[in-house]
């Protein structure tokens, strides 16, 4: 019996030989770039380690994890991540859908508009951050100049100050990600059955009703994925925050990913600073758990979206 099972297994391997070969690069990359760092981080959760050049690696047991739960600034950064993610999703999803709906037809002008809107997606977010700094800074930013010249405001707005910095960050994130989500929606809208839309129109449904009762419900499954991508990406957004505000003023824009990053790559040219890899790893693991929890909750809540078809 065992002999036959082995033979069957060998036959199966031989049959899928090419598939295995093509899987190898991905497997190696996955193991070296995803799995290994995760295992590495899991190991250092239990150590106090200042990175290469540090005096020693000290086993501290669960102390790093306990410290995470005592760290008020970290939990505030998690709440800010939610604000940032929620704000971003709230604006970007309806806007991307509207643009996709308007530009869905394959016309030259639409293609041009789509490319223009998609362009920020392929731009470096660090460069984007710098450009937005020039636009938003309070002392000679272009946005303030335009608003003041048009008489809409009389005093420059401190866009990157304590009261407005988070809103400004959300705006830059929306600008940077809009094209991407628009493309997802265009792909989704093109899958919607034209017969269903035509039947609705024959039955007298206007544009708004067609969108609300036909297109949106039929976009359910893809909407679920888009929302999930938007939520999870909000947990990873870091570069534009770093360039624009560095998490300030006074942590007003300190999102979880940047807070974690600071422990791996402390930035100070003026004073001796060493990374805290152990604590950084603990923060990353807890953040991953929070993100996982949010995703699971979302998938549970959004199960309804799967039942459309």
């Amino acid at each position: 019996m065992k002999f036959y099972a082995n033979r069957l297994k060998k036959k199966e391997i031989k049959k899928n030989f090419e598939a295995y070969i093509f899987l190898i690069p991905n497997l190696i990359l996955f193991m070296s770039c995803s799995l290994y760092p995760v295992l590495w981080a899991l190991k250092y959760v239990f150590y106090q380690y200042g990175g290469y050049g540090a005096a020693e690696i000290r086993f501290v047991g669960l102390e790093n994890l306990a410290r995470v739960f005592r760290d008020k600034v970290y939990w505030q950064s998690i709440m800010r991540t939610f604000t940032y993610g929620f704000g971003k999703v709230l604006i970007i999803i309806p806007l991307a859908f509207l643009l996709a709906y308007i530009l869905k037809e394959r016309k030259k002008i639409n293609t041009l508009a789509q490319s223009t809107i998609f362009l920020p997606t392929i731009m470096s977010s660090a460069v984007m951050g710098l450009v937005f700094y020039l636009l938003f800074n309070a002392y000679n930013g272009e946005i303030n100049k335009i608003l003041m010249n048009s008489g809409l405001i009389h005093q420059p707005i401190n866009w990157l100050g304590k009261n407005h910095a988070m809103k400004t960050l959300i705006m830059t994130a929306v600008w940077g990600g809009l094209g991407n989500y628009m493309v997802y929606f265009i792909a989704g809208i093109q899958q919607v059955s034209t017969e269903a839309i035509d039947s609705a129109r024959i039955d007298g449904a206007n544009e708004t009703k067609t969108i609300w009762y036909i297109i949106l419900p039929m976009l359910g499954p893809i909407l679920k994925i888009i929302l999930m991508l938007a939520i999870t990406s909000a947990f990873n957004d870091i570069s534009n925050v770093m360039v624009l505000t560095e998490g300030g003023p006074n942590n007003a824009t300190m999102v979880a990913s940047l807070y974690n990053y600071r422990y791996f790559f402390p930035v100070s040219t003026t004073e001796s600073t060493v990374p805290q890899y152990g604590y950084g790893a603990a923060l990353s693991v807890v953040t991953a758990c929070v993100a996982g929890l949010v995703t699971v909750l979302y998938l549970k809540v959004s199960r309804k979206l799967d039942d459309i078809y």
């Binding site: 700094y133 800074n137 309070a138 002392y139 000679n140 930013g141 420059p156 401190n158 990157l160 100050g161 304590k162 910095a165 624009l244 505000t245 300030g248 003023p249």
Partner: peptide
């Protein structure tokens, strides 16, 4: 205004 987000080089330009 805007000191909160100011780096040293933009400050020097001003």
């Amino acid at each position: 205004p805007g000191c909160e987000s100011l780096d040293i080089d933009p400050l020097r330009t001003q």
